[in-house]
Write a protein that binds this DNA or RNA. Sequence first.
DNA 1: TCTAATTTCGAGCGATCGTTCGGTGAGATG
DNA 2: CATCTCACCGAACGATCGCTCGAAATTAGA
Lengths: 201, 201
Amino acid sequence: MSPPSPPTRPNLRARWDARRADLIATAARLFAERGYAATSITELTEATGLAAGGIYHYIEGKEDLLIAICDELLEPLIDQAEEIVATDLPPADQLRGLLRAWVEHVASHQNHMVVFTQERQTIERERRWRRVRSRRKAFEKILDEVLRRARPAGAPGDDPQLTLLALLGMVNYTAVWLHPNGRLSPGQIADGYYDLVLGAA
Amino acid sequence: MSPPSPPTRPNLRARWDARRADLIATAARLFAERGYAATSITELTEATGLAAGGIYHYIEGKEDLLIAICDELLEPLIDQAEEIVATDLPPADQLRGLLRAWVEHVASHQNHMVVFTQERQTIERERRWRRVRSRRKAFEKILDEVLRRARPAGAPGDDPQLTLLALLGMVNYTAVWLHPNGRLSPGQIADGYYDLVLGAA
DNA sequence: TCTAATTTCGAGCGATCGTTCGGTGAGATG
DNA sequence: CATCTCACCGAACGATCGCTCGAAATTAGA
């Protein structure tokens, strides 16, 4: 499942890494447009200029692409989230910062995000996806804790768990409708969500 | 794309309709679990007990199943929504009623809903999906209008368009995490969403 | 019971899938 | 120049895909 035979010489290794990253980015775009299962290797050859054999110079199988897309999405997001919660900002400011970083990450990894939500059944079902699942869970845990600390404790009728799920739904869905040069910037969208979940209308 | 040769005699027609509905329900379950493109006709034969040829007695092609799932999801939902907005209830009550009906519909058509959101790229791309797209749009229009009427006009920093998108995101996502006998009933979930979008914390 | 309509079967079709592998040429190393 | 690594090609493989079709089984109505 891991990349086959990266070259040993260091400057060739750098070029190899870059080309693999290009391949993954192209795959993310095609998977987002057509779906993972509905995108054939042949379509990938057309979009990359590589022949079939050339693609398998960088991956061991089609599924590698999906795993790499998830990793590229989740790892930097979790890193950012951990940085934010490690500050000594007041919880509400942490939540605002986390939301902004998150929505901006969705905007800068829009294809990745569409694929990640679209292929949830693939990720959810099988053994070899355990790591991806646990990384997603890690992010949701951070979000959950920040959210609980930031919200006024015990407001009547208020349900932190439901609010978390609502927040996950609205931010994930953002990748579906967001236009790169739309009316609202990612930061403004994040602030809009912040207002919704903190009930400050 | 429409069903081939429904029988002419009326009581046979009823049985034919029922079996077709069973087939569609099974397809919805499998598609929700594995994805549309990743589910084979062979898997459908195993789940239904019908042989390959038998399945094609009720549909013209695999895509018929997906179309039927979308129709079964959207048509009764739009009907309910139109009924609610035709009442002379105050806008806020219309919104609450619409949210409850919607979330309850998501709960009673969970597989349909998962498939509908999961296969968005399929629905979005090609010509023959125009009707489904326009029906989704019709529902979103109703929701948009109710939402605008129900919310206090011109609240500062408030964005009805973003609120609509946030609402679509959270309700669609509900189908992903909802457990049939979970802590919250569909009605409670709907009321939670209502509180979020009306900013009454 | 006879007949015709209906329902189902399942082998098999052509197409396409993901993947493999022997070969080629470029470029660096000695 | 000889040698080796690396990047890539593209024909071909077995598997599986959605789907067809002639025949058999079942059923309804006369």
